[in-house]
Design a protein around this nucleic acid. Sequence first.
DNA 1: ACTCCCGGGACGACCCGTTATT
DNA 2: AATAACGGGTCGTCCCGGGAGT
Lengths: 211, 211, 211, 211
Amino acid sequence: MKAAVSGRPKPAKKSRDLEKSRKEILGVAFREVYEHGFQGVSVQDIVKKTSMTNGAFYHHFPTKLDLGYALVDEVIKGMIIDRWIKPLEGYNNPLQGVVELFEIQAGRADVKSLRLGCPLNNLVQEMAPLDKGFEKRLRGALNLWIDELDIHLQRAKKKGFIKRNVATRDVATFIVLLHEGFYGLLKGLGDPKVYRSLREALRNYVTTVAA
Amino acid sequence: MKAAVSGRPKPAKKSRDLEKSRKEILGVAFREVYEHGFQGVSVQDIVKKTSMTNGAFYHHFPTKLDLGYALVDEVIKGMIIDRWIKPLEGYNNPLQGVVELFEIQAGRADVKSLRLGCPLNNLVQEMAPLDKGFEKRLRGALNLWIDELDIHLQRAKKKGFIKRNVATRDVATFIVLLHEGFYGLLKGLGDPKVYRSLREALRNYVTTVAA
Amino acid sequence: MKAAVSGRPKPAKKSRDLEKSRKEILGVAFREVYEHGFQGVSVQDIVKKTSMTNGAFYHHFPTKLDLGYALVDEVIKGMIIDRWIKPLEGYNNPLQGVVELFEIQAGRADVKSLRLGCPLNNLVQEMAPLDKGFEKRLRGALNLWIDELDIHLQRAKKKGFIKRNVATRDVATFIVLLHEGFYGLLKGLGDPKVYRSLREALRNYVTTVAA
Amino acid sequence: MKAAVSGRPKPAKKSRDLEKSRKEILGVAFREVYEHGFQGVSVQDIVKKTSMTNGAFYHHFPTKLDLGYALVDEVIKGMIIDRWIKPLEGYNNPLQGVVELFEIQAGRADVKSLRLGCPLNNLVQEMAPLDKGFEKRLRGALNLWIDELDIHLQRAKKKGFIKRNVATRDVATFIVLLHEGFYGLLKGLGDPKVYRSLREALRNYVTTVAA
DNA sequence: ACTCCCGGGACGACCCGTTATT
DNA sequence: AATAACGGGTCGTCCCGGGAGT
């Protein structure tokens, strides 16, 4: 997030610091919110973990809520694309890709993310009913996920990997649902064995839509 | 508020009923927490909605956390049993019962629970990683759900409704996972159409385990 | 104050428990107040350390303040008499007795009382300016001390151990002042060496009034 | 209040002067604590008597305890130096200075300080056993007093006003002890006559160390 | 132009000494 | 004699405004 700047030629602008400061805040905020929830984190908590002051924070984000929104739009959305969509491009059969991706990512769920769940799901559960702005943006993130997944599934369908009479968008929705359910339950049970019951079920399910 | 006093003689005490007061607090607290999250509710919010005072509250619950724990153990657990387990007893084929129950309850998801999700899931997502006590109790509630479901599925298996080689506990776990995922996603998308993709998928899935 | 009951035949009244409960509260309260100050101790702290309940406490003492008053009148006054006055009766020359008593009691000041100071002085400093009732009773305790000391000094004077032109009451007052100053400074410095400077000074002083 | 700005132009800022605000709080806090004890004063009591708000207070002092510490280090220490040490510099014979100073300050003890005692002694009696931080700082203040007094007594000794075989530090300690004892007893008895017995005793004592 | 930092109050959980009821 | 209930008070934190400084 912040590293790797080293080698870059750098646009020579001295006040690209603005961009950098914003990114730094977002980075720290993401981790803190991921660990303690949005309501469980104070602006001061975040500020303390950066190299800046309280005043600087409010220069970048007028309110705490604005920070939350930015977290969804600028951080979480990107993560979804990077983790769950981009990798699908490498698969000839996207449906198989979805299963494998799931098995790879979920199967190796380390203790940390096991306890902390899915960043998006966390925010959805906590903030969606509390704030309209959050709700809107979170819905946007979820729809982005589903939409992008759908595109790949349509590709699969075109290639004949999926039955003709299957509504790919419903499948995409269901897959996202499984993600949410899986990470949510994992978080609650704190037991990686949840993965076992999911893997079997997922495979079974996929056979019912595969051509 | 709590009829059922029925048979008891008890000289109709005015307001010195420990049990009743506790129940009142739990009732109000459940609603408030359900709507705003545990962290999003202040003790005073709850107190204001009851007929008692701040001091009375702390007579019943030493800390806010204790209230939260009681909410899981005394309210939520009961709701799970009442909503998802008890009804199964009426079914000859519990597996079918699970599907129908889901369709009944989820299909009629009203706007309210649509926005607010599942009380248990909400708490899991918000509090499990923040507090050991919560984590333990929430895990207990989830396991209770899975265990009780498993008992019914075993019954189904014995009766020949489920394949011999299927691990009923994994199925039970997956079904709970689906609930969590469904309510979670519903909450995020705010769109009852989620139900459609779930219903189809659930039916497909069930056929893969049914004998 | 409480001892010496042993040998007595005991009035056989069963509800000497009332008396006993009161004594128990006073005993616990004295220790707690001695350690944390009157304001630093809550009624509940005291109740918890006894075998009774909140309600029982208020049966014996209408308010916390009443407990404080009883502490002065029923506990502290007795301690003064027992520690600083009674022992003087054994001395032919009370003036010498005062010095020796001081050296015995102050010289062996253990770590505990070293940190906690003199119970009477503690209450004087803390409560006298805050509450008229306390002020009155504390003044009473101090005057009791001075008066009783004076009686012995008059005896010494009569016997020719003290100069004829010395006002014994002033001497008594000064001696109490030295106690307060000693224990107070000891408490502040936490260093038994204070004793050294006092002993020398006390001896010097005594020579100036001795015949 | 804070001169020393001397050369700086400084456009007369309206009310954003850190130092000034801090001093204001300390001033108010000192009076309140002096009158009601540290535990007897709430932060809000103090805030209300200043021109600022609760939030501003905690900007200057993270906790109430920190305020207490500052009170000792920044206010009380200065008062000791100003009242009991500085004036000694004007005396050719510091020993005589000590006596006269005492007679001047103690003799004119007005009703106010009569009831309220010595700020340092008050805090020592109340807080020293309750909090390590207070204990340390209060010990520091007492030692400062003794040390500075000792310096002047050594001067007296050099000039031949004090016997060669007298340990000046013990004398200094004893004099502080007398202060504490005097103000403490005065507070308890509420009677300026205490002064009489002290004056006599002090004079007598001084003769025993004077050359 | 951007950062700093003093300041503002409302509100957080929790505890206090106390009274009503039984 | 004991418990349920009472409110007001405690310290401390929250999110944030806005003038000053670099």
